[in-house]
Design a protein around this nucleic acid. Structure first.
Lengths: 243, 243
DNA sequence: GGTAAACATGAGCAAAAGCTCACGTTATAA
DNA sequence: TTATAACGTGAGCTTTTGCTCATGTTTACC
């Protein structure tokens, strides 16, 4: 006979109802085998949530799609919500990578319009490659996500807020915050709208409107002309030349 | 003994699984008593969906909140989705009333900025009085709603599209459609954002940004100045003077 | 007032979904 | 080689939830 595995300290008690506590992994994978399995499960969850929506999807669906047993799923994810949280974390990392990738080489040579256009195109390409992310955005209000959301979706707002603060130092912190929130909301909504359409033509048409709207708004709100290289403006420093 | 009620023609068969067909009322109420009950149930559904979200809410929750029996609920609503559909219809009617109320007395005397400001304020007041509507908007992608959605949420898009076509007759039908869709999406998203905040101050701050953004966008896109009375423009006819 | 419909009730059924656990397999380390 | 821990499995248990239906009450109409 073999020894029974000692359960992790964090109170996995008998079955007394839904677990309402920490939606974390029940047990972190340590071998390469299981690490790959966790990734496979997340991929499956992503696909299933996209197809059925989070509410309709079941853990058994996900396990089946991942070609693994339901027991393996529950070994690493305490409940269905944990799948959502883990997915959000994974997308958060990808978003971070996208953000740094979209930071232009020569920010001072770029115009406001150019920055916005590149940003929207970049995010659109990201959505095209990660269709499940739209589903995740749609679930942003899920209670399990409220904690991690700041680090994920608010990232875009922070990026825009940072840009705003640099280009328009006269704005108060509160104004900057509102502008970032508003811009992030509009971008998210219009990207979602754009990617509802399957054909590239109407998607591009919607994205063009998004670019126009954001350019007009930020130009006015930050007091920055649309088509003038940011370097030639007297305002603030737009690049991080130092450390 | 009393005669068993003859079941309505539309196939209410034995219990062979979930009903996947028409999410309509199983039986329309004919007496005042039951008509009031249907309203009470809808009010309860509205409140419960707002509190728990549609996915988490159960029909038993709704019945309990309405202080009625689960049987009565199912007498008038074939399934949970039907509650959502009925709610959407009820809000659709209210939205229609709002739309006609927001149609200004003197459209030609108004400026573009004024029209937008009044529209946003009016819709904001509507959301304040109907907090459940936000939840409904969030469920807009629910399969059961796709049919009725056009008549409900698209109403705003149609309104804006109509305005666009009048003020800028040079635009193609497709352009008008995109503009309406985009404007409606942005307005909906920003109103939702505004009403997440409980305090009136930050709500107003967000709405001010929404007004600015919409004014800039529509002004540029339609080629109409922001602060000039629409009557003084050479363009199209802005009022329906005739029948 | 009598009768037939409409209306109302709630215990409880059937299915679905979340999740467990006893058992079996693979990797690791001594 | 062998002991131990990590990993993997899936039948099936428990709970939830959508929904029914046998029974009882109110309203409408003659």
């Amino acid at each position: 006979m073999f020894t029974r595995e000692t359960l992790p300290a964090q109170g996995v008690r008998g079955y007394v109802g839904r677990m309402e506590t920490s939606p974390q992994r029940r047990r972190d994978p340590v071998q390469a085998r299981s690490r790959a399995r966790v990734d496979t499960i997340l991929d499956a969850a992503d696909a299933v949530f996209l197809e059925l929506g989070f509410a309709e999807a079941t853990t058994n669906h996900v396990a089946a799609r991942a070609q693994t047993s339901i027991g393996s799923l529950y070994r690493f994810f305490p409940d269905k919500d944990a799948l959502l949280v883990a997915l959000a974390e994974r997308y958060g990392a990808r978003m971070q990578a996208l953000a740094s990738q979209l930071t232009p080489m020569d920010p001072e040579g770029a115009t406001l319009r150019g920055l916005i256009s590149d940003g929207i195109d970049g995010f659109s390409a990201f959505l095209l490659a990660n269709p499940g992310f739209v589903t995740l955005i749609h679930q942003a209000r899920h209670p399990a996500l409220t904690a991690g959301r700041r680090a994920q979706e608010g990232q875009m707002a922070a990026l825009i807020g940072g840009l705003s603060a640099k280009l328009a130092p006269q704005l108060s912190a509160e104004e900057v915050s509102v502008i970032g929130e508003v811009a992030q909301t509009v971008l998210s909504a219009l990207q979602t709208l754009a990617h509802i359409h399957d054909d590239a033509r109407s998607r591009e048409a919607t994205l063009a409107e998004a670019k126009l709207m954001m350019t007009l708004y930020l130009s006015r709100r930050l007091g920055v002309p649309e088509d003038v290289p940011l370097a030639s403006l007297g305002g603030g420093d737009t690049g991080q030349r130092g450390a």
